[in-house]
Design a binder for these strands. Structure first.
Lengths: 230, 230
DNA sequence: ACCTGAACACCGTTCAAGT
DNA sequence: ACCTGAACACCGTTCAAGT
C-alpha cells in the first residue's frame, strides 16, 4: 500500500515484487500497468524498459512464487517424502497466491512446458525416477502427478477465496448443501460424496490424493521393483 | 465466415454457435463483441439481450462443447470402458476446440465446481462408484481422474496448436531436441524422457495415463473389492 | 420486445520529450 | 540510458433512439 517514492532505481526484481503484491491484493484483473506504475511511483511506460509486456510479467511473477516453493531443505529424504514435501509446498504457495493456479494452467495450456511448469515437472520427475516406476511410465506418471497437484491445489485456493473470510466449515457445509439438493437422477455421484465434503481437512485430503496417484505408480511398477508396499 | 444476413431472429443458441465458430477460428483473444456481432450481422449491444456478458458467453460455449462430448451411446458397457470413452470423448473435443481446455481450467479455478466441469465430475464419478473403490476415496479418485484428463487433453491440444500445421512428428522431434539440450545437472528427468517423446501416439499415451490413474484406484480398492486385476 | 450503433470508461502499448 | 505521461488503438458494456 505504501507508494514508495523511488528511493532506488527501477529494477525488474522490484517490478515483479510489486506485481505479486498487486496480484495478491486484487487478483489477476487488478494487475494493470496503471495500478502497477502507481505502486512504483512512476509512469506506465517505465515498466516496458524492464519487461517486454504483461505476459512476461505474469510469467515472471509465477516463476518467482514457484521457485521459492520448490526450494527444498535438501537433506536426502526418501523420494516419497520429497514428493509429499513438493506437493505441499505448491499447495501452500497457491493457497497464499491463488492467481498462480490459473497462471500455471494457462502456461501449460499455452505450450508443452515452459518456465515455471517445466521446473515443477522436473522436480517431481526426478523423484518419480527413483520410485521404481518402469522407465516407459516416467513421463505419464509425472504429468499425472503434476496435473493432480495443480488441479487440487487450485481448487482448494478457489474454495478459500470464495469464502470471503467466512468460516471454512461454513463454506464446506454450504457446498455440501448445494450438492445434496441437486436432482437425484442426474447427480447420484455428487450427492453421494456431498456428505464426506462436510467435514474433512483440506491439506489431509490433498495428501491422500497424492498418495492415490503414488499408489497407481506403485501398482504399475510392482512387476519390476518389488515391494515398498509397506 | 459467411456473414449471414439476419434471416431469422437472434437467439441465445445462434449466438453461442457463432461464438464457438469464432473461438475455433481465432482462439480466445479473437472473441470480441465487435467481431461476434459482425458475424451475426448486428450491433454489439444486441448480444446483451440474450447473454449477460462475456463470461457467461464463454461458459455457455464451453458447456455446449462439453455436453456434446459427454453424450455416450448409452448401452451399459463396463464402467472401465465407459471411463475410457468419456476420457477420449473429452480428449477429442478439446483437440477440436483447444480453447475449451483453458476455459475448463479457469472454471475449476474460479469455483469449486460449476456448469460444464460439474457435469464432467458427475459423469466420471458415476463410473468410479462402480469400480470397487472404497467410498471414502470416491471424491479424491474422481477429481484426480478429472485433473489428469483435462490436463493431458489440454496439453495435447496446445502441442497441436503450436505446430501451426507442421508435421506432428516434426513437432515431437523438435520438442525432444529441446529437452535433450537442457543442462544435464539441472534437468536429468526431462532429458531422460525426451527420447520416449520422439515417437509415441498421442491418444495411446493419453489412454495409458488414464489407465495409470485407474491402477491407483484398483490398488487402493483392492483391500475391499478383491480383484478385477485381470 | 428487440435491435442498433454511437458513446463511455477502461485497457495494453507506444513514443516524443525530457533528464 | 532511463524515465515520464500523454496519446493511440483497442476492448466490454451501456443506453438513447429507433422498429
Amino acid at each position: 500500500m505504501a507508494t514508495r517514492k523511488r528511493t532506488d532505481a527501477l529494477t525488474r526484481a522490484r517490478i515483479v515484487d510489486a506485481a505479486i503484491a498487486v496480484l495478491d491484493a486484487d487478483e489477476e484483473a487488478g494487475l494493470t500497468f496503471r495500478a502497477l506504475s502507481q505502486a512504483l511511483a512512476t509512469g506506465p511506460g517505465a515498466i516496458y524498459h524492464h519487461v517486454s509486456g504483461k505476459g512476461e510479467l505474469l510469467d515472471a511473477a509465477t516463476e518467482a512464487v514457484v521457485t521459492a516453493a520448490l526450494d527444498l531443505p535438501g537433506g536426502g529424504a526418501a523420494p516419497r517424502e520429497e514428493v509429499h514435501a513438493l506437493a505441499l509446498g505448491l499447495f501452500d504457495a497457491i493457497d497464499d497466491h491463488p492467481w498462480v493456479a490459473a497462471q500455471l494452467a494457462a502456461q501449460l495450456a499455452r505450450t508443452s512446458a515452459h518456465g515455471a511448469s517445466l521446473r515443477i515437472l522436473e522436480a517431481l520427475g526426478r523423484r518419480v525416477m527413483t520410485l521404481g516406476v518402469p522407465r516407459e511410465h516416467w513421463f505419464t506418471t509425472t504429468t499425472a502427478l503434476l496435473y493432480y497437484v495443480l488441479g487440487a491445489a487450485g481448487q482448494n485456493a478457489a474454495a478459500r477465496e470464495s469464502s470471503g473470510g467466512d468460516d471454512r466449515a461454513a463454506v464446506l457445509a454450504r457446498e455440501a448443501d448445494a450438492w445434496e439438493s441437486l436432482p437425484a437422477e442426474d447427480f447420484p455421484f455428487l450427492r453421494a460424496v456431498a456428505a464426506q465434503m462436510r467435514d474433512h481437512d483440506d491439506r489431509e485430503q490433498f495428501t491422500a490424493g497424492v498418495d492415490l496417484v503414488l499408489a497407481g505408480i506403485a501398482a504399475s511398477g510392482a512387476r519390476v521393483s518389488g515391494g515398498s508396499a509397506r
